[in-house]
Each structure stands twice: as structure tokens, then as C-alpha cells.
């Protein structure tokens, strides 16, 4: 699980161009949206693509993302349970 969390942080920084962030800046429980990392609705769509491409998880409704993209910890948990690749 720790490796997965680390991997997610790296991918998120790269995919979303969070140039001012390093992996160490993101705590497992930091909120990804709003006050935390400050991600927005476009980032949510980017994360949906990442889930599909890297882990074979397909979300069809952007609303489903709301409960999953809470924090790195929650996201890793979800991926671990639902991944198909």
C-alpha cells in the first residue's frame, strides 16, 4: 500500500503539472481538492483517465470521483480493492 501511495503522488504531480510540489509535500491524508492540494474539476477528469489507464478502473460518471478522490489514502484504498491491472 505504501508503494501505491508513493506511486500515486508521483503520478499526480507529473500528470497535473504540480511543479511546486514534491512527493514529501503531500501527506497521505491531505485533501486533494479545495484547501488541500487545490485540485479542481478538470483535475478530477484527469484522475479518472489515470484510474482507467493505470489500474483498469472505469468511472462513467464524474460524480463518482467525489468519494474516491478525497485523499491519497482513500484513493489508494479504492484502487487496491478495484484494480483490474
Amino acid at each position: 500500500m505504501e508503494t501505491l501511495r508513493q506511486e500515486l503522488k508521483e503520478n499526480i504531480i507529473e500528470q497535473l503539472n504540480l511543479e511546486d510540489f514534491t512527493v514529501d509535500d503531500i501527506a497521505d491524508d491531505d485533501r486533494l481538492f479545495g484547501d488541500g492540494l487545490g485540485l479542481d474539476s478538470i483535475d478530477a477528469l484527469e484522475l479518472i483517465v489515470m484510474l482507467d489507464k493505470n489500474y483498469g478502473i472505469k468511472l462513467t460518471d464524474p460524480k463518482e470521483g467525489k468519494e474516491i478522490f478525497v485523499s491519497i489514502a482513500v484513493l489508494a484504498e479504492y484502487i487496491a480493492t478495484h484494480r483490474t491491472k
Binding site: 500528470q15 478538470i42 477528469l45 484527469e46 483517465v49 482507467d52
Partner: peptide, 9 residues
């Protein structure tokens, strides 16, 4: 497949 929205937007 696997297209992200940012560059389109």
C-alpha cells in the same frame, strides 16, 4: 483511448 481533457481544453 485514455485521453485526458487538459490539452483539449
Amino acid at each position: 483511448e485514455f485521453l485526458a481533457p487538459t490539452s483539449f481544453i
